[in-house]
């Protein structure tokens, strides 16, 4: 199960997510020509405390659901990419539906710290042309999964 600080998530198998991404990794990453930009930079994901992790993963997965995957469908995509997005997105729905980031006042500073990290990612995304940003964000799902894996307990 995932343990993002106080937030627990079961019924998600990381192997399924890895296999879904690996099936399309090369074709998606090859379409990303702006190799000088990394959205999920070290400053976004390095040394995230347990307490921050629930806020950050909630924001990131919601962004992927509402923006990245949702708009990816408007591009002409191959069938295997549709399938990969479906597996990732439906599992991200399971995760976000079980995350209950705490909203108490004493957690405000932790929330703000996590939000700053998320804004770093979002700003970098918005600075790119939309099509390029969608491709780049999808191509960085391996960075996202690797970070999430640190909170996965077998």
């Amino acid at each position: 199960e995932f343990r993002f600080g106080p937030c627990r998530v079961e019924n998600v198998i990381l192997l399924e997510l890895w296999e879904a991404f690996r099936a399309v990794k090369d074709s998606v990453q090859t379409q990303d020509n702006i190799t000088s930009v990394r959205l999920l930079k070290p400053e976004v994901l390095h040394d995230v405390s347990d307490a921050e992790s629930c806020y950050l993963v909630h924001s990131l997965l919601k962004f992927y659901l509402n923006t990245v995957f949702k708009n990816y469908h408007n591009k002409r995509v191959e069938f295997k990419i549709l399938k990969s997005i479906s597996t990732l997105a439906n599992n991200f729905i399971v995760i976000t539906s079980k995350l209950r980031p705490c909203v108490k006042n004493d957690m405000l500073s932790i929330y703000k710290s996590a939000h700053r990290r998320f804004l770093l990612f979002k700003r970098a995304f918005k600075q790119l042309d939309t099509e390029a940003a969608l491709t780049k964000a999808f191509g960085e799902v391996d960075i996202l999964l690797t970070w999430m894996e640190k909170f996965y307990h077998y």
């Binding site: 890895w18 990794k25 990453q29 090859t30 190799t35 191509g139 391996d142 960075i143 999964l145 690797t146």
Partner: peptide
């Protein structure tokens, strides 16, 4: 090469 990610 494609994008190479040593950790994974």
């Amino acid at each position: 090469t494609g994008r190479f990610y040593p950790f994974s």
